[in-house]
Simulated assay, not measured.
Amino acid sequence: MSAGQTTVLTETAAAATGVDGAKEDRHFVTALARGLAVLACFGPGRTSLANHDIAEACGLPRSTVSRLTYTLTKLGYLQHMPELGRYRLGTATIALSSAALGGLDVRAIARPALQAVAEAANASVGLGVRDRLSMRYVDCQRGPAAISLNLDTGSRISLARSAMGRAYVAICPERERQGIYEDLKALDPVAWPALRTGLDRAVAEHREIGCCTSFGEWQETVCAIAVGFHPGGGLPPMSVNCGAPTVITDARFLMEVARPKLIDAVRSLDGVMGA
């Protein structure tokens, strides 16, 4: 399992046990959060899971997971494969994802600009939104390089360590940013000081040079930059990254060649849905 997958599963466990629950929010429904955390376990490289896999990822007892997977299967959100003793996402999740993505008209507007940057930088360019303590890809365009990042629509990456996540933090409302900081600190108090330093640096970077960076901090072999923006039209903040394996590109190329192109592309998307 890669470092990125481990981070995502750690964040899934936090969602299941309820980092927000620690805030003693009487409106927070822990059972619902756990059920959604079970669904969040599935993704690229994790298309089918057994109860014990889910229990480990969510940090929950197997008996609890068994009840959750049974309920989600009855509702069509999971499909049980009895011959394997495993589960996969059910057809009910397709309706949810289709409805969610269908409401993001900004994807169609952004796609030509993202593709132009991907080709010019010979890299992967992704459009992402926040998903708790992760970033979720809602679109991805690739350059002509034979080797590219193994990420696509629906993929999740770390909010705190990735350029995409840092760009989101840099432009989100101050109140939301403080909430993110509190959740990250509660999730891993030991790692928090280093994460805080990286996020504070990212906020300054976005203001001073127009983008955030992550050179080997999300994954050692990946270099990326990202720019955040406000699409308007009632949509939440979003961010666009540009990155590639280090065998394809390096920090200097991204900063000197890709950065101005990425900034110009994202600038054209700022407020586009409210226009």
Rank of each mutant, 00 (worst) to 15 (best):
T69Q: 10
C58H: 08
D105H: 13
R111E: 01
P61A: 15
V129K: 01
K74G: 05
G85K: 05
G103Q: 15
N122K: 13
A57Q: 14
R107W: 02
T73D: 04
D53Y: 14
G76C: 04
V106N: 09
Y77H: 12
V65R: 09
L84T: 04
G126L: 14
G85I: 05
L89P: 00
G85L: 00
A92L: 05
M81C: 03
A50L: 02
L68I: 12
A92H: 10
T91W: 04
P82A: 01
T64Y: 12
D131W: 03
S66G: 13
A120V: 02
Y87P: 10
L127V: 02
V125L: 11
A95S: 13
R67M: 06
L49P: 13
N51F: 04
A57I: 04
L49W: 12
R132M: 06
S97G: 07
R130H: 05
T93P: 03
R88A: 14
I54P: 10
L60T: 02
D131K: 05
V125W: 13
I109T: 06
A95C: 01
A50C: 09
D53T: 07
L96H: 06
R111S: 00
D53M: 04
I94R: 15
H80R: 12
N51M: 01
L72S: 11
V65F: 08
A118I: 10
A50V: 07
P61K: 15
A55M: 01
S63W: 04
I54M: 05
H52S: 13
N51H: 00
Q115D: 10
V129Q: 00
G85V: 01
S63G: 03
I109F: 00
S63P: 03
L84D: 06
R111V: 00
H52C: 06
Y77K: 01
T73F: 10
H52W: 02
G126F: 13
A118P: 10
T91Y: 01
L101F: 07
R130W: 12
S124K: 03
G126W: 08
